[in-house]
Design a binder for these strands. Structure first.
Length: 450
DNA sequence: AGCACA
């Protein structure tokens, strides 16, 4: 179909339209100036300025075609050309019949923000960093990122427009704090407007998009496509591929960490299938196997950098193992396969009672037994919104260790339908799972030691 | 100085 626009257009052959096309406008001509210009000839119902590559073109739409004709006619025979700020403006009929899409977006407050990350290394900013930055203002439901001509952009979804507005006001035009990025990344400025979206569609958890309301969403196939770039860490460096098996090393091990302790700690996030402990480089390490990657991700994010015992003792450092299925040859005090019942050997769930030993680790203690956080159907309330009123400076605590718990989602989301492959009961298993280290390994302050 | 964008 040979459309009008495919043929060269000449101003004298342009058929009349309610819409006039203006060019040679001065810089950043305002809507008000366009209205002033057209007002003598009729009612200006719509305008659009800053059009075209040089942003020096505009459109005026009149209520009536005759008004547009009047304006064109006047200036066709006038000795004075149309002017804006003393600059001659050239007029002609537009080849369209109406201005589309003028009054929209940008200024209508909504719960979703469009964030443009400016800077040389903008695309090295990970989704995790963005999550961290925006979480300071409230629960972040979802984030998607994408490349556009505008650069590296993200859509950040909050619960409501108020929260989004507070984030926008605090962050627009600011740079991402340096300590959240590795040193070799040049400064990245955030430009924020409102998006017209209200609910983002996130199909996978990936390095491009996250749905924090649903940790059981499938992980993107990017793990399979061998890119190896699945996840970018806080520092923007590549991390090892995610895995259902975690490698935990224990630092500053003042107290013995037993298999049972590990089982208890890690079970807070889902069923632990297998554990293997071993010594490496003079320290203790353990491999912990979950049935799926998602659970491992949640556990890792919650536990990384945290201490099993108060006082900085037995600090956990967690990474993803290359293993996917541990081979446990024998159940003993260093390795165990919980998927194979072994009554002879085991008492995999030692007595319970206190949770003191893990008090310093937010997730296991806080998450497991707080009934209030299971508000069905509610997407919020699963975690305390971090420092709402905080200004930018204090919005993101400078201590990395304090971040994971604060910013981490509740591992048990009130979305039963969304955890198909995992029996909910499996996750709530171990009534009173706060196992205590066997006598002799109990930290001195633990009240209920023998 | 020559027709826009989600």
């Amino acid at each position: 179909m040979a459309s009008v626009s495919s043929q060269p257009q000449f101003r004298y052959t342009q058929p009349p339209s309610k819409v006039l096309h203006l060019r040679n406008l001065p810089w950043e001509c305002t809507e008000e100036e366009l209205i002033e210009l057209g007002k003598p000839f009729g009612k200006v119902v719509n305008t659009k300025c800053n059009v075209g590559a040089n942003r020096n073109q505009a459109f005026i739409e009149f209520a009536d075609l005759n008004q547009a004709i009047a304006m064109i006619s006047y200036y066709a025979s006038s000795s004075e050309p149309a002017q804006v700020r003393g600059k001659t403006v050239y007029l002609q009929y537009s080849n369209r019949q109406e201005i589309v899409n003028n009054k929209t977006t940008a200024d209508v407050a909504g719960n979703v923000l469009l964030v443009t990350i400016e800077g040389q290394d903008a695309r090295l900013v990970s989704i995790d960093v963005l999550h961290l930055v925006f979480s300071a203002f409230g629960f972040v439901h979802k984030i998607t990122t994408f490349e556009k001509t505008a650069g590296f952009q993200a859509l950040v979804q909050f619960s409501d427009a108020e929260t989004a507005t507070s984030a926008k006001n605090a962050l627009d035009g600011r740079i991402i704090p340096r300590y959240l990025l590795s040193e070799n990344i040049s400064p990245c400025t955030l430009r924020i407007t409102y998006s017209a979206h209200t609910d983002l569609s996130v199909k996978f958890q990936s390095h491009r998009s996250r749905d924090y309301t649903n940790p059981y969403l499938p992980v993107a196939p990017s793990a399979i496509d061998g890119s190896g770039q699945f996840s970018l860490g806080l520092d923007g460096k590549k991390l090892e591929p995610e895995s259902n098996v975690l490698l935990a090393s224990i630092e500053n091990m003042q107290y013995a960490v037993t298999l049972d302790v590990l089982q208890m700690v890690f079970s807070a996030f889902g069923p632990v299938q297998k554990i293997a402990m071993f010594d490496k480089n003079g320290g203790l390490q353990a491999l912990i196997q979950y049935p799926d990657v998602q659970t491992a991700i949640v556990a890792k994010e919650a536990l990384e950098g945290h201490c099993i015992y108060d006082g900085g003792f037995c600090k956990l450092h967690i990474s993803y193992s290359r293993h996917t299925d541990l081979s446990i040859k024998v159940n003993n005090d260093r390795s165990r396969d919980y998927t194979i019942p072994n009554p002879a050997l085991v008492n995999p769930q030692p007595s319970i009672l206190g949770q003191q030993p893990v008090q310093t680790m937010g997730p296991p203690a806080a998450h497991q037994y707080n009934g209030t956080q299971y508000a069905p159907g509610s997407e919020q309330g699963m975690m305390p919104p971090p420092q709402h009123s905080a200004g930018w400076a204090s919005a993101v605590p400078p201590m990395p260790q304090s971040m994971p718990v604060q910013m981490t989602n509740h591992p048990y989301m009130p979305t039963p339908t969304s955890m198909p492959q995992m029996a909910p009961t499996g996750m709530m298993q171990m009534p009173g799972q706060g196992g205590i280290p066997p006598a002799g390994t109990v930290p001195p302050y633990t009240p209920n030691q023998m």
